[in-house]
């Protein structure tokens, strides 16, 4: 009973309000008043203006800027990574190329040196042979000349000796013949 009595206290005013709503203007029963409506609209308008100008717009702008910045950074990072990879590939290729070139140069130099060595050896041999040949020739001619000189020297000596020995016994004619004979026998 007590509870019912208590609840009735709440229900009766609601029923009364419904009566007012049914009989008169429902908006008035709900408390709609144009002055309050305008006042609340102004309150809301002020709040909207304040939040718009000093909260939503600057922060939303900043958020967008930050998004753009992060996207750019990520894009840049990708690009840098790609460039780094490309550079690395290029570097590797370049190293391989350089090595190949270097080994080619070394091989060429070696073969060049070999060739030069062989050539020098061949030239040296030819020179030696030439010198030897010249020396032989010189020796030969020297020998011949010495022999000829020696012959004439000997002939003179023999003549002189024969003259000394035969001066008195032979005449000029016999002398000449004698000389000739002795020369032939040499």
């Amino acid at each position: 009973m007590n509870l019912l009595h208590y609840l009735a206290q709440f229900i009766i005013p609601i029923a009364r309000a419904q009566e007012t709503a049914a009989s008169g203007n429902p908006a008035a029963a709900l408390g709609v008043d144009w002055r309050l409506f305008v006042a609340q609209l102004i309150n809301f308008g002020i709040l909207l203006f304040v939040l718009w100008k000093w909260a939503f717009v600057p922060i939303a702008k900043k958020l967008e800027e930050r998004t753009a910045k992060i996207e750019k950074s990520l894009h840049d990072a990708d690009r840098i990574e790609k460039e780094k990879r490309e550079f690395e590939n290029w570097r590797q290729a370049e190293i391989i190329k350089t090595r190949q070139e270097a080994s080619a140069v070394v091989t060429a130099a070696q073969s060049e040196a070999q060739k030069a060595k062989q050539q020098i050896a061949a030239e040296t041999k030819a020179e030696q042979e030439k010198i030897v040949a010249q020396a032989k020739q010189q020796i030969d001619s020297e020998k011949n000349r010495s022999i000829a000189e020696a012959k004439s020297e000997i002939a003179n000596l023999v003549t002189a000796a024969a003259e000394k020995i035969l001066r008195k016994k032979l005449d000029a004619k016999a002398d000449q013949e004698l000389i000739k004979e002795s020369l032939k026998s040499i």
Partner: peptide, 29 residues
């Protein structure tokens, strides 16, 4: 008491009834 459907005016500024709800909304502002 159970609150009535309409907010109750606490005082008036010239002809504007300042209700308890309006006080709350202004404080929130």
């Amino acid at each position: 008491a159970i609150p009535p459907l309409a907010a109750e005016p606490i005082f008036h500024i010239s002809r504007l009834p300042v209700t308890n709800s309006y006080i709350n909304s202004t404080l929130t502002l």
